[in-house]
Deep mutational scan, measured.
Amino acid sequence: MATGGRRGAAAAPLLVAVAALLLGAAGHLYPGEVCPGMDIRNNLTRLHELENCSVIEGHLQILLMFKTRPEDFRDLSFPKLIMITDYLLLFRVYGLESLKDLFPNLTVIRGSRLFFNYALVIFEMVHLKELGLYNLMNITRGSVRIEKNNELCYLATIDWSRILDSVEDNYIVLNKDDNEECGDICPGTAKGKTNCPATVINGQFVERCWTHSHCQKVCPTICKSHGCTAEGLCCHSECLGNCSQPDDPTKCVACRNFYLDGRCVETCPPPYYHFQDWRCVNFSFCQDLHHKCKNSRRQGCHQYVIHNNKCIPECPSGYTMNSSNLLCTPCLGPCPKVCHLLEGEKTIDSVTSAQELRGCTVINGSLIINIRGGNNLAAELEANLGLIEEISGYLKIRRSYALVSLSFFRKLRLIRGETLEIGNYSFYALDNQNLRQLWDWSKHNLTITQGKLFFHYNPKLCLSEIHKMEEVSGTKGRQERNDIALKTNGDQASCENELLKFSYIRTSFDKI
């Protein structure tokens, strides 16, 4: 039985969820670079991206490699990797027998973001014989899940209580170790020597080791999670996991709180800001991140802002960003909400898709409305799209047979046209069989910064309504002859009103 693990408890099935942008060198404390989270699957090609990484700022997932063999891993080693800020997950990587050479110096898994409450997941690794993470000293947050690894031993010899604050939620089941077939031998045991430290858990006094050649490092209890030197002297209180010299914040392997210019500090002093819960960055760093993602459509890219001495992905609820200094300031009234469309555009074809934009005031991208039916549609669209004030790209209304009016965009005031449909149009209306009105132009103002209007096959939309939009939106004169079809717009509506004058002759039985 794995020490510190839980057996036999019912657990939810383990679901495996399925960018080499360097964020800056980590400095003297770390020998390499800070790398983003990685999802490495199918083959070993991307694994080489770990070569210079000291910190993975995010998670590391290595999974679904069915053609790899043990010899493929023999020359692979990433000794610079010290810390993973989120979680480490391995799933069905064939041929991998140990992690001792792959990650010989991995010391800390912070667990800032977890995989279903777990910071370390080893699942269905069919050839893994031992973990071998002999320098792993601290899992700051989260638990361990090690399950269905039929060859995995050296679990009962690990004292997880020396690595985690609590072992109650560890789930370590259905491994070879369960069948008591392992016969784990710690260093020196074969020669009758006791080389590794022994600890007591559940009444068992057991030597602690990761492999037959690597003991588990056990520091004096007084050192807590700070770690200790090879001689057993406690590291500085700002260290986490390990250090090369005692009581020196510049000799830590990793930091308990924050890293700044080669030393570990309790908090980031001005003019620095907390970033990702582990390091200090200056304003320029946060500003660069903001600008890199301002026009990016890459998933996970955030326009970072500053709030409460932190550089964070977005302002919290009730705050909006001051564009001059990136500071989050309290909103006066309802907060603006910028919604970034991942692929640059979004099609609204149902109430469900409209709900995804609920509360958005600025759309960074283009909207395509293609709704053919739905219950209580006008009210639903207004509830979900009615706060949109600005669209950076274009607005396209296409084959939306259920629409009679666009009044559900009740606050839309600006279409920038930074991206144009077919390279020309910022407003595009095609084949809307029941569209009769755009907006009530006596109450609604709309500016279209650039781009043209396109109207074709809107049989109940009168040309007068379209011409009014040209005047109000500032697009009059931009359109070419064929942009607004004269014969297919309003051709099934009563669009022309003329005053009919009647004269009559009164007659009676005795007068003409």
Rank of each mutant, 00 (worst) to 15 (best):
residue 28 H to L: 09
residue 30 Y to C: 13
residue 31 P to A: 04
residue 31 P to K: 09
residue 32 G to Q: 15
residue 33 E to S: 14
residue 33 E to C: 12
residue 35 C to W: 01
residue 36 P to S: 04
residue 37 G to N: 14
residue 37 G to K: 03
residue 39 D to L: 06
residue 39 D to C: 15
residue 41 R to I: 06
residue 43 N to K: 09
residue 44 L to D: 08
residue 45 T to E: 15
residue 47 L to E: 01
residue 48 H to Q: 15
residue 50 L to I: 09
residue 52 N to S: 10
residue 52 N to T: 11
residue 53 C to S: 01
residue 53 C to T: 00
residue 53 C to P: 00
residue 54 S to L: 03
residue 56 I to P: 00
residue 56 I to Y: 00
residue 56 I to C: 01
residue 58 G to F: 01
residue 59 H to M: 08
residue 59 H to P: 11
residue 60 L to T: 02
residue 60 L to M: 06
residue 61 Q to E: 02
residue 61 Q to N: 05
residue 62 I to W: 02
residue 63 L to I: 05
residue 65 M to I: 04
residue 67 K to M: 09
residue 68 T to Y: 12
residue 68 T to H: 09
residue 68 T to M: 10
residue 69 R to K: 02
residue 69 R to S: 05
residue 71 E to G: 13
residue 77 S to D: 02
residue 79 P to F: 03
residue 79 P to G: 05
residue 80 K to I: 04
residue 80 K to A: 08
residue 82 I to W: 10
residue 82 I to T: 10
residue 82 I to C: 07
residue 84 I to A: 00
residue 85 T to C: 06
residue 86 D to R: 02
residue 88 L to R: 01
residue 89 L to A: 02
residue 90 L to Y: 01
residue 93 V to R: 00
residue 95 G to A: 06
residue 95 G to M: 03
residue 96 L to V: 10
residue 96 L to I: 08
residue 97 E to T: 07
residue 98 S to V: 02
residue 98 S to Q: 02
residue 100 K to V: 10
residue 101 D to P: 12
residue 102 L to I: 14
residue 102 L to C: 02
residue 102 L to Q: 01
residue 103 F to A: 00
residue 103 F to R: 00
residue 105 N to G: 10
residue 106 L to G: 00
residue 106 L to C: 00
residue 108 V to C: 04
residue 108 V to M: 14
residue 109 I to Y: 00
residue 109 I to G: 00
residue 109 I to M: 03
residue 110 R to A: 09
residue 111 G to H: 02
residue 112 S to I: 14
residue 113 R to G: 11
residue 113 R to C: 13
residue 115 F to C: 06
residue 115 F to K: 08
residue 117 N to Q: 06
residue 117 N to K: 04
residue 118 Y to S: 09
residue 118 Y to F: 06
residue 119 A to M: 00
residue 122 I to L: 07
residue 122 I to R: 00
residue 124 E to A: 05
residue 129 K to H: 12
residue 131 L to V: 07
residue 135 N to C: 05
residue 135 N to V: 01
residue 139 I to L: 07
residue 139 I to Y: 01
residue 139 I to P: 01
residue 141 R to T: 04
residue 141 R to C: 03
residue 143 S to P: 10
residue 144 V to A: 04
residue 144 V to Y: 01
residue 146 I to S: 02
residue 146 I to G: 01
residue 146 I to C: 05
residue 147 E to L: 11
residue 147 E to A: 11
residue 149 N to G: 06
residue 150 N to C: 03
residue 151 E to K: 14
residue 153 C to S: 09
residue 153 C to P: 00
residue 154 Y to K: 08
residue 154 Y to H: 12
residue 155 L to I: 11
residue 156 A to S: 10
residue 156 A to P: 12
residue 157 T to R: 13
residue 157 T to D: 12
residue 157 T to G: 07
residue 161 S to C: 05
residue 162 R to W: 13
residue 165 D to H: 06
residue 165 D to K: 15
residue 165 D to Y: 14
residue 168 E to S: 15
residue 170 N to Y: 04
residue 171 Y to I: 14
residue 176 K to R: 08
residue 177 D to C: 08
residue 177 D to F: 11
residue 180 E to S: 11
residue 183 G to F: 07
residue 184 D to Q: 02
residue 184 D to L: 13
residue 184 D to K: 12
residue 186 C to G: 10
residue 188 G to Y: 09
residue 191 K to S: 08
residue 191 K to C: 02
residue 194 T to I: 14
residue 195 N to E: 14
residue 197 P to H: 08
residue 197 P to A: 06
residue 198 A to F: 10
residue 199 T to R: 10
residue 199 T to S: 07
residue 199 T to I: 06
residue 199 T to E: 05
residue 200 V to R: 11
residue 200 V to Y: 13
residue 200 V to A: 13
residue 201 I to F: 14
residue 203 G to S: 09
residue 203 G to L: 09
residue 207 E to T: 14
residue 207 E to A: 11
residue 209 C to F: 02
residue 212 H to K: 15
residue 212 H to P: 14
residue 212 H to A: 14
residue 214 H to N: 14
residue 214 H to V: 13
residue 215 C to R: 15
residue 216 Q to I: 04
residue 217 K to L: 12
residue 219 C to H: 07
residue 220 P to F: 02
residue 223 C to V: 01
residue 224 K to V: 08
residue 225 S to E: 03
residue 225 S to Y: 09
residue 226 H to G: 11
residue 232 G to W: 04
residue 234 C to L: 01
residue 234 C to R: 02
residue 235 C to V: 00
residue 237 S to I: 09
residue 237 S to R: 11
residue 239 C to P: 00
residue 240 L to Y: 13
residue 240 L to H: 14
residue 240 L to M: 04
residue 241 G to Q: 05
residue 241 G to K: 04
residue 242 N to R: 09
residue 243 C to I: 01
residue 243 C to Y: 00
residue 243 C to P: 00
residue 244 S to T: 04
residue 245 Q to H: 12
residue 247 D to Y: 14
residue 248 D to F: 02
residue 249 P to W: 02
residue 251 K to M: 15
residue 251 K to C: 06
residue 252 C to K: 01
residue 254 A to L: 10
residue 255 C to T: 00
residue 256 R to T: 11
residue 258 F to Y: 11
residue 258 F to K: 02
residue 262 G to S: 09
residue 263 R to F: 00
residue 263 R to I: 00
residue 264 C to M: 01
residue 265 V to T: 05
residue 265 V to W: 00
residue 267 T to I: 03
residue 269 P to W: 01
residue 271 P to R: 09
residue 271 P to N: 02
residue 272 Y to S: 01
residue 273 Y to K: 05
residue 273 Y to L: 10
residue 275 F to W: 07
residue 276 Q to S: 12
residue 277 D to V: 03
residue 277 D to N: 15
residue 279 R to L: 13
residue 279 R to Q: 15
residue 279 R to K: 05
residue 281 V to D: 00
residue 283 F to P: 10
residue 283 F to K: 12
residue 285 F to L: 04
residue 285 F to Y: 04
residue 285 F to K: 01
residue 287 Q to N: 07
residue 289 L to S: 10
residue 291 H to E: 09
residue 291 H to V: 14
residue 293 C to G: 02
residue 294 K to A: 14
residue 296 S to G: 10
residue 299 Q to F: 07
residue 299 Q to R: 13
residue 300 G to K: 15
residue 303 Q to S: 11
residue 305 V to D: 02
residue 305 V to I: 03
residue 308 N to W: 09
residue 309 N to K: 04
residue 309 N to P: 02
residue 310 K to A: 10
residue 311 C to Q: 00
residue 317 S to I: 09
residue 317 S to Q: 15
residue 317 S to P: 07
residue 318 G to L: 05
residue 318 G to A: 03
residue 322 N to Y: 06
residue 324 S to F: 13
residue 325 N to C: 12
residue 325 N to Q: 12
residue 328 C to D: 00
residue 328 C to R: 01
residue 328 C to G: 01
residue 329 T to H: 04
residue 329 T to S: 09
residue 329 T to L: 09
residue 330 P to N: 09
residue 330 P to F: 09
residue 333 G to N: 06
residue 333 G to T: 03
residue 336 P to E: 07
